[in-house]
Protein backbone atom coordinates (compact mmCIF):
# COMPACT_ATOMS: atom_id res chain seq x y z
CA UNK A 1 0.00 0.00 0.00
CA UNK A 2 1.19 3.46 -0.78
CA UNK A 3 2.73 5.61 1.90
CA UNK A 4 0.41 8.52 2.40
CA UNK A 5 2.89 11.34 1.98
CA UNK A 6 0.39 13.54 0.29
CA UNK A 7 -1.59 15.72 2.64
CA UNK A 8 -5.33 15.25 2.42
CA UNK A 9 -6.77 18.33 0.81
CA UNK A 10 -9.64 19.86 2.68
CA UNK A 11 -11.01 22.51 0.41
CA UNK A 12 -13.67 24.74 1.86
CA UNK A 13 -15.38 27.42 -0.13
CA UNK A 14 -18.50 29.52 0.22
CA UNK A 15 -20.19 27.23 -2.25
CA UNK A 16 -21.56 23.67 -2.26
CA UNK A 17 -21.02 20.97 -1.33
CA UNK A 18 -19.88 23.05 1.72
CA UNK A 19 -18.20 20.06 3.33
CA UNK A 20 -14.50 19.30 3.06
CA UNK A 21 -13.93 17.39 -0.16
CA UNK A 22 -11.83 14.28 0.07
CA UNK A 23 -8.93 13.33 -2.15
CA UNK A 24 -5.14 13.32 -2.01
CA UNK A 25 -3.67 15.15 -5.02
CA UNK A 26 -0.16 14.08 -5.97
CA UNK A 27 2.35 16.18 -7.83
CA UNK A 28 4.59 14.69 -10.50
CA UNK A 29 7.50 14.24 -8.09
CA UNK A 30 5.38 12.45 -5.52
CA UNK A 31 3.93 10.19 -8.16
CA UNK A 32 7.31 9.31 -9.68
CA UNK A 33 9.11 8.69 -6.41
CA UNK A 34 7.40 8.99 -3.10
CA UNK A 35 4.27 6.92 -3.30
CA UNK A 36 4.00 3.32 -4.27
CA UNK A 37 2.79 2.55 -7.74
CA UNK A 38 2.87 -0.56 -9.86
CA UNK A 39 3.34 -0.58 -13.61
CA UNK A 40 2.30 -3.00 -16.31
CA UNK A 41 2.75 -2.90 -20.05
CA UNK A 42 0.03 -4.94 -21.70
CA UNK A 43 0.87 -7.04 -24.73
CA UNK A 44 -2.24 -7.91 -26.63
CA UNK A 45 -2.36 -8.94 -30.24
CA UNK A 46 -5.36 -8.94 -32.52
CA UNK A 47 -5.93 -10.02 -36.10
CA UNK A 48 -8.96 -8.17 -37.41
CA UNK A 49 -11.04 -9.44 -40.30
CA UNK A 50 -11.92 -6.68 -42.72
CA UNK A 51 -15.43 -7.99 -43.31
CA UNK A 52 -17.41 -8.59 -46.46
CA UNK A 53 -17.82 -4.98 -47.62
CA UNK A 54 -14.49 -3.50 -46.53
CA UNK A 55 -12.60 -6.42 -48.12
CA UNK A 56 -14.02 -5.40 -51.48
CA UNK A 57 -13.26 -1.73 -50.74
CA UNK A 58 -9.63 -2.67 -50.01
CA UNK A 59 -9.41 -4.74 -53.22
CA UNK A 60 -10.58 -1.62 -55.06
CA UNK A 61 -7.90 0.52 -53.43
CA UNK A 62 -5.28 -1.96 -54.65
CA UNK A 63 -6.57 -1.28 -58.16
CA UNK A 64 -6.56 2.47 -57.61
CA UNK A 65 -10.36 2.69 -57.29
CA UNK A 66 -12.58 4.09 -54.56
CA UNK A 67 -15.82 2.16 -54.19
CA UNK A 68 -19.10 3.21 -52.67
CA UNK A 69 -22.39 1.39 -52.22
CA UNK A 70 -25.93 2.49 -52.96
CA UNK A 71 -29.24 1.79 -51.25
CA UNK A 72 -32.16 2.18 -53.65
CA UNK A 73 -34.68 2.59 -50.86
CA UNK A 74 -33.17 5.70 -49.25
CA UNK A 75 -31.28 6.65 -52.40
CA UNK A 76 -27.99 7.21 -50.59
CA UNK A 77 -24.60 6.46 -52.10
CA UNK A 78 -22.09 6.08 -49.27
CA UNK A 79 -18.47 5.27 -48.64
CA UNK A 80 -16.80 3.54 -46.83
CA UNK A 81 -18.90 0.68 -48.20
CA UNK A 82 -21.05 -1.43 -45.92
CA UNK A 83 -22.91 -4.67 -46.51
CA UNK A 84 -26.26 -3.33 -45.36
CA UNK A 85 -28.01 0.02 -45.19
CA UNK A 86 -28.00 0.98 -41.52
CA UNK A 87 -31.14 3.12 -41.99
CA UNK A 88 -33.33 0.81 -44.10
CA UNK A 89 -31.82 -2.31 -42.56
CA UNK A 90 -31.61 -4.25 -45.80
CA UNK A 91 -28.69 -5.29 -48.00
CA UNK A 92 -27.10 -2.55 -50.10
CA UNK A 93 -28.20 -2.77 -53.73
CA UNK A 94 -25.18 -1.93 -55.84
CA UNK A 95 -21.49 -1.22 -55.84
CA UNK A 96 -20.42 2.03 -57.48
CA UNK A 97 -16.95 3.02 -58.60
CA UNK A 98 -16.52 6.59 -57.36
CA UNK A 99 -13.99 9.08 -58.64
CA UNK A 100 -10.75 9.55 -56.75
CA UNK A 101 -11.48 13.24 -56.30
CA UNK A 102 -13.42 15.03 -53.63
CA UNK A 103 -13.83 18.08 -51.42
CA UNK A 104 -12.40 18.92 -48.01
CA UNK A 105 -15.32 18.85 -45.57
CA UNK A 106 -13.08 19.77 -42.67
CA UNK A 107 -9.41 19.55 -41.76
CA UNK A 108 -7.01 20.10 -38.90
CA UNK A 109 -3.32 20.81 -38.51
CA UNK A 110 -2.04 18.54 -35.78
CA UNK A 111 1.24 19.35 -34.02
CA UNK A 112 1.28 16.62 -31.38
CA UNK A 113 1.37 12.86 -31.21
CA UNK A 114 -1.21 10.97 -29.17
CA UNK A 115 1.08 11.16 -26.13
CA UNK A 116 1.44 14.92 -26.59
CA UNK A 117 4.97 14.89 -28.00
CA UNK A 118 5.55 17.74 -30.46
CA UNK A 119 5.52 17.00 -34.19
CA UNK A 120 7.92 19.10 -36.25
CA UNK A 121 6.05 18.39 -39.47
CA UNK A 122 2.36 18.58 -38.68
CA UNK A 123 -0.18 16.01 -39.84
CA UNK A 124 -3.16 17.39 -41.77
CA UNK A 125 -6.08 15.03 -41.13
CA UNK A 126 -9.26 15.76 -43.05
CA UNK A 127 -12.71 14.42 -43.78
CA UNK A 128 -12.84 14.13 -47.58
CA UNK A 129 -16.27 14.12 -49.25
CA UNK A 130 -15.76 11.78 -52.19
CA UNK A 131 -17.21 12.87 -55.55
CA UNK A 132 -20.20 10.81 -56.63
CA UNK A 133 -21.55 10.15 -53.13
CA UNK A 134 -24.58 11.70 -51.47
CA UNK A 135 -23.94 15.13 -49.94
CA UNK A 136 -21.56 15.29 -46.99
CA UNK A 137 -20.44 11.67 -47.28
CA UNK A 138 -16.78 10.91 -46.94
CA UNK A 139 -14.06 9.42 -44.82
CA UNK A 140 -11.03 10.30 -42.77
CA UNK A 141 -7.74 10.69 -44.62
CA UNK A 142 -4.73 13.00 -44.80
CA UNK A 143 -3.99 16.06 -46.89
CA UNK A 144 -0.51 16.27 -48.45
CA UNK A 145 1.37 18.06 -51.17
CA UNK A 146 1.31 21.22 -49.07
CA UNK A 147 4.34 23.45 -48.48
CA UNK A 148 5.26 24.90 -45.11
CA UNK A 149 4.71 23.92 -41.50
CA UNK A 150 2.96 26.85 -39.85
CA UNK A 151 -0.77 27.29 -39.47
CA UNK A 152 -0.62 30.40 -41.64
CA UNK A 153 1.33 28.73 -44.45
CA UNK A 154 -0.90 25.67 -44.49
CA UNK A 155 -4.16 27.60 -44.27
CA UNK A 156 -3.10 29.57 -47.30
CA UNK A 157 -3.22 26.33 -49.30
CA UNK A 158 -5.86 24.24 -47.52
CA UNK A 159 -9.42 25.30 -46.77
CA UNK A 160 -12.85 23.80 -46.24
CA UNK A 161 -14.50 23.28 -49.63
CA UNK A 162 -11.21 22.83 -51.47
CA UNK A 163 -11.22 20.26 -54.31
CA UNK A 164 -8.68 17.48 -53.77
CA UNK A 165 -7.45 14.38 -55.59
CA UNK A 166 -6.08 11.10 -54.25
CA UNK A 167 -2.35 10.57 -54.60
CA UNK A 168 -1.84 6.82 -54.95
CA UNK A 169 1.08 4.60 -54.12
CA UNK A 170 2.68 3.10 -57.25
CA UNK A 171 0.63 -0.01 -58.21
CA UNK A 172 3.42 -2.44 -57.34
CA UNK A 173 3.58 -1.10 -53.79
CA UNK A 174 -0.14 -1.21 -53.02
CA UNK A 175 -1.29 -3.75 -50.49
CA UNK A 176 -5.05 -3.39 -50.31
CA UNK A 177 -5.05 -0.89 -47.44
CA UNK A 178 -6.39 2.61 -46.79
CA UNK A 179 -2.76 3.76 -47.01
CA UNK A 180 -2.68 2.78 -50.73
CA UNK A 181 -3.89 6.38 -50.98
CA UNK A 182 -0.88 8.30 -49.67
CA UNK A 183 -2.93 11.43 -49.14
CA UNK A 184 -5.27 13.82 -50.95
CA UNK A 185 -3.70 16.87 -52.56
CA UNK A 186 -5.27 20.15 -53.64
CA UNK A 187 -6.28 20.34 -57.32
CA UNK A 188 -6.37 23.65 -59.12
CA UNK A 189 -8.74 22.62 -61.92
CA UNK A 190 -11.30 19.90 -61.78
CA UNK A 191 -13.76 18.36 -64.21
CA UNK A 192 -17.46 18.89 -63.47
CA UNK A 193 -18.79 16.84 -60.62
Amino acid sequence: MARTRAKPATARAPAPPYVPLRGHPLNEEEFRGQVGSTTWVPRLEYAWDAGVAISRFLDGLREGKIYGVRCRRCGRTVTPPRAFCELDFKPMDEWIELRDTGTINTFSICYVTWDMKPLRVPQIPAVIEIDGTSPRVGFLHLVGGVRGRTVTEIRRQVRVGLPVRAVWKPPAKREGAITDILHFEPVRKRANR
Binding site: T4, A6, P17, L21, G23, P25, E28, V35
Partner: peptide, 10 residues
Protein backbone atom coordinates in the same frame (compact mmCIF):
# COMPACT_ATOMS: atom_id res chain seq x y z
CA UNK B 1 -18.26 14.88 -4.92
CA UNK B 2 -14.62 14.12 -4.38
CA UNK B 3 -11.91 16.60 -5.26
CA UNK B 4 -11.06 16.63 -8.96
CA UNK B 5 -7.28 16.16 -9.35
CA UNK B 6 -4.64 15.67 -12.03
CA UNK B 7 -3.41 12.65 -10.15
CA UNK B 8 -4.86 11.21 -6.98
CA UNK B 9 -3.17 8.92 -4.51
CA UNK B 10 -6.66 7.55 -3.95
Amino acid sequence: LSLFMRRALD
